[in-house]
Design a protein around this nucleic acid. Structure first.
Lengths: 193, 193
DNA sequence: TTAATTTCTTAATCTACATCAACTTTGCCG
DNA sequence: CGGCAAAGTTGATGTAGATTAAGAAATTAA
């Protein structure tokens, strides 16, 4: 059950069996059906969530009611409204299951306790956050300097597994175009080849 | 000399005098003239830089030769090519002084040594990275869901000190429009009021 | 299976912002 | 201070991608 997560952690820090047990004691497994939400904008985000199976998405809704996908969380990924989780103020992110999903939560309180019990986790989450920061900075650069077509091509390379079983309107939203434009773009790409 | 930095750190972790000394031993103060670079794209980023006075900017150059400002570093801010710093592979960021600047460097090696010597710094840099991640995620959302005018308004609120003494083409680049459009936008804003 | 709902496609029209070009203003360096 | 490069302005025109709308295809739920 926790194998995927523990293997993931093992890439960055080494844990004794005791430390693993302490860690696992803070986790709460759960599963959630497609289309259900684990977080709504305006709420305070109280957990980090690690996906073991299925897929979640984090998105905002702008003042015109348009959704914008900030992140996908396929197996092996963490997701949370980082702003809200850190500040414990109401956030702007909605987190929804795109398919039936199995995951574990680590509460904010649990995470902080973990830092004192096993300080090595400071390192683990620092590295995790660093990697996330790098990906987000790259996305900003891509959004500023590339066309939608180029961003799509990058998405395909970076998330090959997601392409197949994700509604394409979700991908359109992630790369920052409308579903209509995305559809056209795809058919033009096929025509070109 | 290190006061600004130490006060900054004190917001997140408490350091003994010994620990402060260890930290400072890893720092190297330097100053750099306007228009000089401390990092070029294609190079490996070997340092984090903390600005005490002046201002730096980090930017990429796209395949058409257009610059895109990823970040400004006024006094009290860190700057680095995080991708390159972490991976120690060639990066895409240029870092340039917008004015004569005084700063300190912390080398990648020094930072890692610091983590083992004073583990509290894991926490400090984790928090720093978390805050940066939150800001970057917000910027992605803003770029996807707001008009240039709205992004400018947010920029003004968030970086009031920068507005005055920054060439406006740099601000235009940061919010993701051309200098020409930015100029027009500003004059329309004035006309409106 | 079928009805209902959601997703995808295609087409016409529209707009925020880019590009190009010429000119004016600012600010820096000798 | 004066000359020159960089920054900012303004206007005409171009375009990537949005919007609206309506039908076709695919999923889902019953």
């Amino acid at each position: 059950m926790f194998d995927l997560l523990l293997n993931n952690i093992a890439k960055y820090i080494h844990l004794t069996e005791d430390e693993k047990a302490i860690f696992i004691a803070h986790l709460k497994p759960f599963h959630i059906k497609r289309k259900q939400f684990i977080l709504n904008d305006g709420e305070i985000c109280r957990n980090s969530v690690f996906v073991a199976q299925g897929c979640l998405r984090g998105f905002t809704v702008d003042k015109n009611g348009v959704e914008h996908v900030l992140s996908f969380a396929p197996p092996g990924w963490w997701i949370a409204d980082m702003y809200s989780l850190i500040s414990q103020k109401p956030g702007i992110l909605n987190i929804e299951a795109l398919e039936d999903t199995e995951a574990v939560t680590l509460s904010k309180a649990g995470q902080e306790k973990l830092y004192t019990e096993v300080p090595k986790f400071e390192r683990f989450f620092r590295i995790l956050t660093e990697n996330s920061l790098v990906a987000n900075q790259q996305r900003i650069v891509d959004n500023m300097s590339l066309t939608a077509e180029e961003r799509y091509s990058i998405f395909c390379k970076r998330y090959p597994t997601l392409i197949d079983h994700l509604p394409q309107k979700q991908i359109a939203s992630y790369i920052g175009v409308t579903p209509e434009f995305f559809s056209r773009m795809k058919s033009e790409l096929i025509r070109k080849k």
